[in-house]
Each structure stands twice: as C-alpha cells, then as structure tokens.
Design a protein around this nucleic acid. Structure first.
Lengths: 355, 355
DNA sequence: GCCCAACGCGTAAACGCTTGCACGCGGACG
DNA sequence: CGTCCGCGTGCAAGCGTTTACGCGTTGGGC
C-alpha cells in the first residue's frame, strides 16, 4: 500500500533517480531499463505522490479556473470545454467560483491559490475585478476568456460586432426604436456586457437612431430578470418595437413577458438574443451564436502552451460568431395592422443562416 | 518572494514548529506568540506551500468530484452547490468529468487521483460503473449523489416515489395510456434513471394500467432527444395521451414535438417533467422539483464530515420532493372534443403546489 | 514545600520525490 | 593508440512542511 519510488527502484534493481526519469519519459534512459521499470511500476500499481513530486519539482501540477458562476448555461459550457482539454493533460483542474462579484461575497480566496497552481483561467471577469489583481501579481501565466489584458493569453469573441450584428439585423428589418436588455447597471464586472453595450450603441448611432436610457432595462442575465426587463420596457411611454437581449436566457424571459402581454414575438415585437443556447431553437429565437465550448477548450490549450513555454509571447484569439435568424424577429409593422409574418431580413451581407 | 516558514520563524523569533502550530490554530501556543506569528505572516504575505504541507502531513487537501457531465443543467447546479460548501473549507475541488460512461470514452483517470485526494464525490453514477471500483478500493471516504452503497455516505432524492408521484398525477387526471420518455436503453449507468423507471412502472401496475414497450422511448436526457422520443411515441399505432419525461429538458423537447404536430400540451397530450428547471415555469410544464443545489451542498458537507471523522458510520440522506402542477397536464379528454382546460387534479393527497 | 500535570516551545527526523553533479564506460575521431 | 564526448546511471542534497519527543517552567493539590 505504502508504495514509494524506493520500492520500485529496489524491485527493478535501479536507483530512484532512474525510476523517476524512466517513468516520466525523460531522455538518457536505456529503453530496456525504462521498460523494466514501467513493468514493475505497473505490477506494483504504483502512482507517484503528487505532493512529493510537486514539492521537489516546484511545479504545482494544477491550474485554477476562476468563474463567477458554475450553474449558468454559458459558464457551465465553457467549463466543460476547459475540462475536456485538461483531462488529457497532466494538470489538475481546481474549480473556484468567485461568486457574483457585484454582490461582494466573501473575499475571493485567490490568496490560497498562490502557491497551488501553475496558471489561471479566468472567465468573463473584467481584469480590474477586485481580487483579480492578486492573480496578476503572481506572474503565473493567465488565460483570459472574454477579456484581454497586456501580457495575458486570451480567447473570446468580438462582443462589439456581435451586438452590432444583432442590432443591425433589427435595423434592417425597419425597426427604429430598439430596446436593450442588459445585465446590470454599469460599471459591470463582466467584460462582455460592456462590449455588447458598445456594439448596441454603435449600431444605433451609425444608423442615426435614438439611444435613450428609456430603451434600456437590466435583466441580470437571468430568465426572470429578462422577463421583468421586458415588462419594464413595455410599460415605458414610447416602448421599443424590437429588443436586443445580451443573453439568450434574458431573451427567453423577454419572450415570456411578451406572451403574457398578449404580444407575439416577431409579429408584434422582435427579439434577438445572444449565445446560441439550445433552447433558442425551441423558442424560435433569433440569436447570435458563439462557439462556447470551443472558447473554453481553446483557452485551456492556450494556458497549457503558456505553461510549457514560459516567456512565450501571449496570443489573443478571437473566435467567429454567426447569427441564426428565427421567428422572433420580423419586419416592423404598425401595431394593429394585419400582415403576414415576413421575417427574412434584407441584411444578406451579414453572416447568418436559417434553421 | 521565496517565503518559507523559516523566514517567518526567524522574523517572529520562534521555531518553525511554533509557526506551523500558531498558523494552523493548534493548541499549546501562547496567545501572544500566536498573534505575533500571525502578524509577521500577514506582513510578509506568507502562505504555506501546499505541496510541502501535504507531503509532511499525508493529507491531500482536496476532494475530487466525479461527474458524467459538467455542462448539463442538473450537474452544473449540483456542482455549484458542492463548490459553495467546499469554498468555505480548506479543501480544493478537483473537477473530473468521466464523460458519458456509455460511450466508453478514454479510460477514466481515477488512477491518477489515487494519492491526490482525501475523498470522492460521485454524481449520479451507478456504483458498478466501470472504473468506479478503483475509487472504492482506495478506502477513502466517498459521498454518493443519487445512489447508495454500503459504507458510503449518500445524498439524494427518492426517485422511485418522485416518478410515481408524476405518473399518479397523470392517472388521477384520467389518463390510461401513459408514455415514458426515458434516458437510454437499460442497463444504464445512471442510477436515477433506473429508479424513475421503477416508479413509473409501479404507478402503472398498481393502477392496473398497461406497461408496454410501445409506450417507451429514449430521449438521452437532451432536448433534441426528448423531441425525437415524443415524435416516436406519437407515431406509434396507439399513442399515449400523457407522457412522463425523466427530465425537464427531455420534456421541453416533448413539448416542442407536440407543437410541431399541432397538438397542444395539456389539452391534447399531458406532459410531466422531472427536475424543477427554471424554464419549466416559462414553458408551463408540470414537473417534480428536486432541491438540486442543496443536494450538492449536503453531499459536500457529508464528505467533509466523513473526512474529519474517519470511521464514523456513514449517513444516507434523502431530500424532499414536490410537484408543481402547471398547464402541461390536464384531464384526459377524447381527441377532437372541445373542453375547457381543467388541470386541477384530484390528487390532493400528494404533495404539490401551483404557481 | 513537593510532586506531577499541563503548558509552551524547540529540535530534528521524516514525508517521497526531483535533479545537479559525478562517474564509468564504450565508441568515434584524430 | 590516446582523447574526448556522450550516454546511462547512481549519489545525495535539497524541496518546505509537520509532528513525535523532550525539555524547562508554572501552578495547583496535597
């Protein structure tokens, strides 16, 4: 039971040094010796003690994933992508949820992680999030998802143009009062939120359309929040005829609110979401789809690369977006008029597809 | 940078042993000394080297969570509950997805975890899942979620009676041909699946209703799968008038299939789901709700308890279930007849509520 | 006033591995 | 035939903690 490297060494008739080298695939070991050692280790069911190995080598043998949420759709999927890559590596995946940063939970325990990991994977958090600075100060490699930062590797999508694409689609459909269901009041600790806000604004401005506070409502990235936000918007003096929601989940809530008000998505109010959630198809929601799991996987690969090659110049990766047009968006029509549901937009210059 | 316990000892004018004791809150340390050491450590920004600590103490300082999926709703939520508890403890959370066991992915790397963790948390997997035996052989404490096993702690719900509750509800509504959307063909590596199947069967048998293979279809626990399953059931010679889906996500797919066939959930075919997914409310789906996040949290607590008190007799915990009745279930009516949507079932003896 | 327990602390031996260094040996090269 | 190089290997010094043990000092009970 108490198998140590010494037992293997004795059994194989070599020194512990050779066992160590043989088992780890280091050079300068006779192939025959290596094989013999392997067999002995196998037979005795030996696995190295990570603690001892880490202490001696100075490597932590694990990476930490810092995420604001675990249970939410987007984060779960990203995490899944990360895990798949890490599974194949030698590194352990330490999961650390930071809790909703805007709620100033307990102090994030990044302190504890200090001597414990070889690198960090941070999801969606603005680089100036409180508590994140400790991570950058470690000088360990960091891979950022959905953000960028000098000296860090990063993977993400172009949130600005994604949002612009969504809003432009609505503009092309003839909408002029286009609402926004955002996350929470700025400043937000989430980078994508800021960027989607910029994209929304850009699109409106370059079409010389109004950007009014009255067209915005916070949905806190939840279904319920999205529903409340839509309800709020509908209650405004001059409600929007179309809405861009920063996430599909909020869009789901918006759709629900519309139905509750006797309005039909698409026909009465157009809605675009963001993410590519599976349910979007089922709810007939037009959305900007991002390769979520891939984002996680690529980020993990980046981090592994950074750990293996310290000092290597970090790369930033931007993954492609696409739009899926469904029934929740349609040409603007005056309320009350009858018309067929014409939902093919004249914006063929944008990347999009139908399903 | 290279802060060791020795630096603290020197600076505080004590031995490393005292530093170690002071910082870990062990007894037999003068309160004044302890405080002084604390201050020095704080000032020098010292954190213990987990590797060294683990090597010396023999504790791994982390627990592994073995889960078949990360991205799926149920597992993400359970994981979130686990993480919240572990965050407050001293233990690291090592995430290890096993991949879909029925697909015989790569060999699960539980081997690697051997000397690396102080305990295991296993989600939903049958205890006889291939590769899980290695875990039990370690003799480390194991907390099981959704399953039970001699010598293991466990937390879960009563899947049998949950399923029975769902089906009984349909029976009470007058349905006689009640379909089942299950996960995959038995034998399945997931325990809840077996049990829900038993509950389904029990309810039907004790009402002297038919249990036919023709009433079953596999939905693989995905939305798409649920949709396909419902479509399959509808195409059968004598289709069911009501369906119990083993998960809400499959039920969502079923609802979609119904709509695609011009059928209205509740009025034409009743559907009950299982989980308490947020979207269930939005899709007006009757469902059995389980305290998912709580399940994870309790299991984590159990494991911590087991680790702190080795040899303690394991406890099994069963958490309560409830049923939320919504519009997707209604009294059976003959196809084609008009009738109002009467959906209040005469099964007041069952725990349920309306929203 | 004595004895013993309890307390606070230091000494030093692990814990199980990695790795710089040195050594011997055989072959290539001049 | 001597030298040198490089390969395969072993030796042993760490890596930074924890903890059994022992020692001196106090204080309370008799």
């Amino acid at each position: 039971m108490a198998m140590t490297i010494r037992d293997i060494a004795r059994e194989a008739g070599v020194s512990t040094a050779t066992v160590s080298r043989a088992l780890r695939g280091l050079p300068n070991v006779d192939p025959l010796t290596r094989e013999r050692v392997r067999q002995v280790a196998e037979r005795l069911d030996y696995v190295v003690s990570p603690a001892a190995s880490r202490l001696a080598s100075g490597r932590a043998g694990s990476i930490a994933v810092i995420t604001p949420y675990i249970a939410r759709w987007y984060f779960g999927r990203v995490l899944s992508g990360i895990e798949k890559v890490l599974q194949a590596s030698e590194l352990d995946l330490l999961l650390s949820s930071i809790g909703d940063p805007s709620e100033t939970h307990h102090v994030p325990p990044h302190r504890k992680l200090r001597r414990r990991v070889d690198g960090f994977l941070v999801i969606s958090l603005s680089t100036d999030t409180e508590g994140l600075s400790e991570i950058f100060e470690t000088n360990l490699p960091v891979a950022l998802i959905d953000t960028e930062r000098e000296g860090c590797w990063s993977v993400g999508i172009d949130d600005v143009s994604g949002a612009r694409m969504a809003v432009q689609h609505l503009i092309n459909l003839g909408h002029e009062r286009i609402g926004l269901i955002s996350g929470r009041p700025l400043p937000t600790p989430f980078r994508p939120e800021e960027n989607r806000w910029v994209g929304y604004r850009d699109a409106l401005l370059s079409a010389r359309l109004a950007v009014e506070p009255d067209l915005e409502a916070c949905g806190h990235f939840t279904i319920e929040g999205g529903e409340r936000a839509m309800t709020t918007l509908l209650a405004r003096p001059n409600p929007p005829t179309a809405v861009f929601a920063m996430s599909d989940e909020m869009a789901f809530g918006a759709l629900r609110s519309l139905r509750a008000h006797g309005l039909q998505p698409g026909r009465d109010v157009s809605v675009v979401g963001f993410d590519g959630h599976e349910m979007a198809e089922h709810l007939d929601l037009t959305t900007i789809v991002q390769p979520v799991e891939d984002i996680g996987a690529r980020a993990a690969q980046s981090l592994l690369e950074a750990i293996d090659n310290p000092g290597r110049e970090p790369k930033q990766l931007t993954l492609p977006l696409s739009m899926v047009v469904r029934g929740s968006t349609a040409f603007r029509r005056d309320r009350g008029h009858a018309s067929t549901s014409a939902d093919e937009a004249p914006d063929a210059h944008l990347a999009h597809r139908r399903t």
